[in-house]
């Protein structure tokens, strides 16, 4: 796909997800107001941290008076999954100028990353600029909505009361459906889900660790399975 049309479809495809981001942005703005953050600080945090979940967790720690170190640690724990996400972008970033690698890394969010892979699983040829335009649009919406939230904190309804807290759960259900590549995904996904559920509900660890470990264990099981099926193919060819 050409660069300009990638830009255009990137923004179009991310728009419904960006609406969900706006809701979270306003919710984060309310929290930032409780943490006595200014509009400028909120905008800077959106621009330079640009990771909604970790901003919410860290700021919630600030409101709870846990201190700066505890706030940063909680935010970092939630962002560990990004290590895996940008690792999976290696083929998209490799060989590009340094500024494009840095930009691509910084613009990595759950939304444009999942959308990129979901599109490809459907056989649509999308690449770096599709990913960047989605990320840029999410950033724009994130900064506008968080600053609006912190500025007009007293006027905003609670997200849970109107059901919009469920927006991303539904979005990720749809994205997971389009990530399905075939029956070879079944076993790794079951491994991921059961590992994450077991760790999140039984182990005394942050749920972010349960998420990351679940994802890694499932992916590794796919690696093991592919080795097995290749051995089998070789045997059947040899026999």
């Amino acid at each position: 796909m050409r660069k300009t049309s990638e830009y255009y479809t990137g923004v179009m495809d991310i728009t419904p997800l960006a609406m969900g981001v706006a809701v979270y942005g306003v919710a984060f703005g309310l929290l930032a107001a409780q943490a006595q953050m200014s509009s400028l600080q909120t905008a800077m945090m959106g621009l330079f941290v640009f990771a909604g979940g970790s901003q919410i967790v860290a700021t919630e720690r600030l409101v709870a008076d846990a201190g700066a170190i505890a706030a940063i640690t909680a935010g970092v724990a939630l962002n560990l999954r990004m290590l895996l996400m940008t690792a999976a972008l290696r083929d998209d970033l490799k060989g590009r100028p340094l500024w494009q690698i840095l930009l691509g890394a910084h613009y990595t969010t759950d939304e444009n990353w999942a959308l990129l892979h979901a599109k490809r699983a459907k056989g649509v040829d999308v690449g770096y600029w599709y990913f960047i335009s989605g990320g840029a649009f999410i950033m724009l919406i994130w900064i506008i909505s968080t600053v609006a939230g912190v500025s007009f904190a007293s006027l905003v309804p609670e997200p849970k009361s109107i059901g919009v807290d469920f927006a991303f759960t539904a979005a990720f259900i749809a994205i997971l459906c389009s990530l399905w590549r075939g029956k070879e995904d079944l076993f790794p996904w079951i491994i991921s889900i059961s590992t994450a559920v077991l760790l999140a509900s039984l182990a005394p660890i942050e749920t972010s660790w349960a998420l990351v470990i679940g994802g890694v264990v499932g992916a590794l099981s796919a690696g093991v399975l592919s080795g097995k099926s290749r051995d089998y193919d070789l045997e059947s060819v040899g026999g």
Binding site: A87, T207, V212, G223
Partner: peptide, 17 residues
């Protein structure tokens, strides 16, 4: 093979959590 399976596994895990 592990890397190619990672996006689906990570989103499945995220949803589970």
């Amino acid at each position: 093979a592990s890397f190619n399976a990672l996006p689906g596994c990570l989103i499945a895990s995220l949803l589970a959590v």
